[in-house]
């Protein structure tokens, strides 16, 4: 094992050893398959390794939470996904879940209990903030010290679940200059991908929602647009490309910002 080797234990492996992790990291479909968001998954796993969090993943045993099916009106498909996930989670006796996807977070936390799945679920922004507050995660004001960073609120983190401050606390811990867009927190503008819009073309209109949003982000003159959601990541990155600001303005997930400052 070299120094650069990280551990990514699966629940199956831990169970074979008779161990139980502190927390299950729910990777999500984007975190597992989307090339850009895989980097976020890797960044978060590196942080967990460095901090020494006793975690595990489900690996190939994880299924989609069913969020896009439910939001697209396909309740059968949602419940099929949900039930089979609950069976897996309960089989391993999972108590606590952390995820880097607000859609997975919302579904696991708010919609699984009615189907019999009860877990403590937190979004990785809250998890990172807790690690910082507890002193387990030490951030050196390095890479982003004094730099203008703006945070794009995800609907399923903010309005849907009232998490507004944790991501901001994480950014402040970097000694970055947090600048807000005009529409932020409860008034944050959606990236345009929620409600299964990610998986269809937008309806006819005057403008794409992500363009409207990225224009607002660019107005802040921030060099970094921080996000905490795989769909927002895609939409904001596309917006930056549309405005030909690639290389000039970066879109990063919170865990990537942290990792670069560790």
């Amino acid at each position: 094992m070299s120094e650069n080797t990280y551990k990514v234990p699966t629940m199956a492996e831990l169970q074979a050893k008779g161990e139980q992790p502190e927390v299950l990291f729910w990777v999500g479909c984007a975190g597992a398959f989307d090339d850009r968001y895989k980097q976020v998954t890797v960044a978060f796993v590196k942080i967990l390794n460095k901090v020494g969090v006793n975690f595990a993943v489900l690996g190939t045993e994880e299924n989609c939470t069913g969020d896009p099916a439910r939001r697209a009106g396909n309740e059968f498909l949602f419940q099929m996904q949900a039930m089979s996930n609950i069976q897996t989670l309960d089989m391993y006796g999972i108590k606590k879940i952390v995820t880097a996807c607000p859609h997975c977070f919302n579904t696991l936390k708010n919609e699984y209990p009615e189907l019999g799945g009860n877990y403590e679920v937190i979004h990785h922004s809250t998890f990172l903030q807790q690690l910082i507050d507890e002193g387990r995660l030490k951030v050196e004001g390095g890479a982003f010290k004094g730099k203008k960073v703006t945070f794009h609120d995800s609907c399923y983190l903010g309005r849907a679940n009232g998490v507004y401050e944790a991501p901001r606390e994480v950014i402040k811990a970097l000694d970055a200059d947090l600048v807000e867009m005009k529409r932020c927190r409860t008034k944050g503008l959606c990236c345009g991908a929620g409600g299964a819009q990610m998986f269809k073309e937008p309806e006819e209109g005057k403008k794409d929602i992500n363009i409207e949003r990225i224009e607002e982000a660019l107005e802040t003159e921030a060099k970094v647009v921080a996000v905490g959601c795989p769909f927002c990541m895609v939409m904001m990155t596309d917006g930056i490309k549309n405005k030909e600001k690639e290389g000039e303005v970066m879109v990063y997930d919170l865990s990537e910002l942290i990792l670069k400052s560790m």
Partner: peptide, 16 residues
Amino acid sequence: NMAPWKFSPSDRFNWA
């Protein structure tokens, strides 16, 4: 595939 995109479920853990 238990994912909204067309990927094989057996590839789900390849990121690691």
